[in-house]
Write a protein that binds this DNA or RNA. Structure first.
Lengths: 338, 338
DNA sequence: GCTCGCCTTGACAAGGTTGTCATGCCTTTA
DNA sequence: TAAAGGCATGACAACCTTGTCAAGGCGAGC
């Protein structure tokens, strides 16, 4: 059993009042350096840790940040958690995870948990971050929130995102620099905002480099392995096939690789393949996939930071936002035209 | 802003004392049905939700279950969270996630968080679940915990696991039933307990079916894609290669598939490949991988259940444990001997 | 009819921290 | 020199619920 040391004992040992100990713990101003030091020594000596329940009952803060998700990708979710925790720990905050069941009434699930356990802030990942009902509840309850890679209504709240357009532009430019002219493209799920942005980057890069965007070299996909596989079959099983394919995400790119294998097309000698997201699967394939890495952990950390510093509390001002840099990860699936 | 309704107002509206409302909320016995109903109506009318901080300060429960992990597999971690949450929600508990940095002093990370935020229980995933220092801290702090798939010292605490031996046995039997005689095996990381169990299942099945275990058809791997790839190169790049390979996990099995592709061996016509774990990657490969599914969500739910029902509070008795069933997932990567 | 004991309920303290307000001292300003 | 204001600190209430203990009512057994 742990000996529960209270603030009382720290006060007694350091010879000050409870309130002063509290001030030191909360880094409040107006405490003599001398006193502050003495208290800190007592805290260390007794191995005292404030009781979080008492804290949040008495004060306004709960020392809890929520992460709501409804995201099918475990890798994404875990990265968000790791990034958020990294920042939260510095301030003594904890992370509470709330998977949402998108099949049901999401807003109805959110309301009780917000009500019971007053979190100091919530991080929303796609696609929940675009669920208007959830945002409404959050605002009604007065809980600050930050959205990660939101798709719609950017001005509505604080958010953190990455420049999908430029990333897709640079990946396309990378393929062009390898000598490719006919670069196929597989679009993502049409209802996912990133799809349009990535396509836009591809088109812009092609045009700026004087490459025509051939209608018959652009296929619609749905972000799934299968849809990538099928799109690749249509693109590759004919004589005038492209020498490179840029898929809007890794899963679809893996589908392209599978078709290439099946058709006995050497990657990257005969066909270059590029993906987007740098999922774990990108490394679990041979050859390893060239892709774009989203700085997910950093984005989540930035979101936590906005929450912890109170940057979301803007009166009338536009909500703050952060735009983080992506990283082009060039592996073995792309190479010069053979 | 949400109107903060207190238990006081519920008491006033229903015409009973605060304490009686509390009794109803906590489903305590000895409350007249009539009274209970009246209180419940008032709760509903006011949309009252108890304040969790006040609850845990006054009472013993914190309504928080922790999940500690240090697991490189996002899919695993997410499944654990989903499984645990499913059970926790039923009882109004929340999940607090604490990724541990295995590079540092893990026990030192655990102590403060346990001390600050008194969780009612903790779920430990591999490999943290076998970290003796962490278990020591947990016990010193008097926090109940349940381990998932622990490897050592099973009797030390409550735990939930799956029968790895039998699963490996059945996968091997499946391959044998398809007509395979020379079945290669790739072992997992030697310091991971599951490795030995899975190998044991393989050996037992081979022997019971009168198949010899050829030393040169068993390779050491480390659970990584690369190690599977390299092991497969050794197994396959020779005339007397096996007609089937059973890898101790999916990542290594995917490595095998990559080598097969490279060597132009048709899967499953020329070579059958089986994995273990049913990771997302198993479906993102062509042909899709035959593997063993661990009921991770169910295991986590069982762990949460042990915690919530107080089953871990055994006085002198042996700690409780649960053994869950696995599932053989037969997909396209295994087939009859060609 | 009386005692015993169970069921039902309520009054009150406790739980550990923060917020508010008051106090005393020291420094600056007129 | 006196007044004003800032700094450092402490006393005490407040936060909202649960645990403890006592009390009243009622039925069963003798």
């Amino acid at each position: 059993m742990s000996s529960k040391v209270t603030i009382h004992e720290v006060a007694r040992l350091s010879g000050v009042s409870i309130k002063t100990v509290s001030r030191v713990l909360n880094r409040e101003p107006n405490v003599k350096t001398d006193t502050r030091t003495r208290v800190q020594e007592a805290v260390a000596a007794l191995n005292y840790r404030p009781n979080i329940s008492a804290r949040s009952l008495a004060g306004s803060k709960a020392y809890l940040i929520g992460v709501f998700f409804d995201n099918p990708s475990p890798a994404y979710v875990t990265d968000v958690q790791l990034g958020a925790i990294a920042r939260c720990r510095e301030e003594g905050y904890h992370l509470i995870v709330e998977p949402l069941d998108s099949e049901g009434d999401v807003a109805a699930q959110v309301e009780p948990m917000l009500h019971t356990l007053r979190m100091d802030g919530v991080i929303l990942t796609p696609p929940v971050c675009d669920n208007v009902a959830v945002l409404d509840v959050l605002e009604a309850e007065g809980v600050p929130y930050v959205r990660l890679s939101p798709d719609q209504d950017l001005e509505r709240s604080a958010h953190v995102r990455m420049d999908d357009v430029r990333a897709a532009y640079e990946m396309t430019a990378h393929l062009i620099s390898l000598g490719h002219t006919d670069i196929g493209f597989i679009k993502g799920h049409p209802e996912h905002g990133a799809s349009h942005l990535r396509y836009e980057g591809y088109v812009t890069a092609m045009k700026e480099h004087g490459r025509p965007v051939r209608e018959d070299h652009v296929e619609q996909g749905w972000f799934s392995f299968r849809s990538g596989f099928e799109a690749a079959e249509r693109l590759l099983d004919r004589p005038d096939r492209p020498t490179a394919i840029f898929a809007s995400n890794d899963d679809m790119a893996l589908g392209v690789m599978a078709v290439a294998n099946r058709l006995r097309l050497e990657v990257p000698q005969t066909l270059s393949v590029a993906g987007f997201d740098d999922t774990p699967g990108a490394k679990v394939v041979w050859p390893q996939l060239t892709t774009v890495r989203q700085p997910i952990q950093a984005m989540a950390a930035a979101a936590a930071d906005l929450l912890l510093t109170g940057a979301t509390r803007t009166e009338g001002e536009a909500p703050p936002s952060r735009l983080l840099d992506f990283e082009l990860v060039v592996r073995e699936s792309t190479g010069p035209v053979g």
